[in-house]
């Protein structure tokens, strides 16, 4: 169990979070779900996941702030995938500038997410 790749899923939408968690777990990952920014921050201060998947719009602590926190305060090189609503391109660009690795716009295809996660992890492993 401990050898599984851990993913932090920061998503305030409970239904979507459940769905994605199930899909990722089925894909062989260990998923930790955080409902808001506070939980994410607390989790990251304790543990470093192998990957972070976060929604841009989150209560208390937005996805942008989360990227900034991870990259500049924690100085982590963890791959980050952003989930954004359609038509939110400006935020996506900002997220990339801050250090996000990839993005998915809603509506999401869970299979696509799985492929992207695998690719990012592979890329990160290769770079490391």
């Amino acid at each position: 169990m401990t050898n599984l790749t851990s993913i932090l899923l920061a998503e305030d939408d409970e239904l979507l979070a459940t769905l994605l968690t199930h899909r990722l777990e089925k894909g062989g990952y260990q998923v930790f779900v955080s409902r808001d920014g506070k939980q994410v921050k607390e989790y990251l201060e304790q543990t470093v996941p192998d990957m972070i998947i976060c929604d841009i719009m989150m209560p208390y602590f937005s996805g942008m702030e989360l990227i900034d926190f991870v990259r500049n305060e924690l100085n982590l090189n963890v791959p980050i995938i952003i989930i954004s609503s359609a038509g939110n391109e400006e935020n996506v660009l900002n997220a990339f500038e801050l250090g996000a690795n990839d993005f998915l716009s809603k509506p999401i295809s869970p299979s696509e997410l799985l492929v992207r996660v695998a690719k990012e992890l592979k890329k990160n492993k290769f770079e490391a």
């Binding site: 769905l19 809603k106 509506p107 295809s109 299979s111």
Partner: peptide, 15 residues
């Protein structure tokens, strides 16, 4: 309600 809600956020084969 659940299906209608998920419909908004899903695409592809899952949809």
């Amino acid at each position: 309600d659940i299906l209608m809600y998920l419909r908004k956020d899903l695409s592809g084969a899952t949809l």
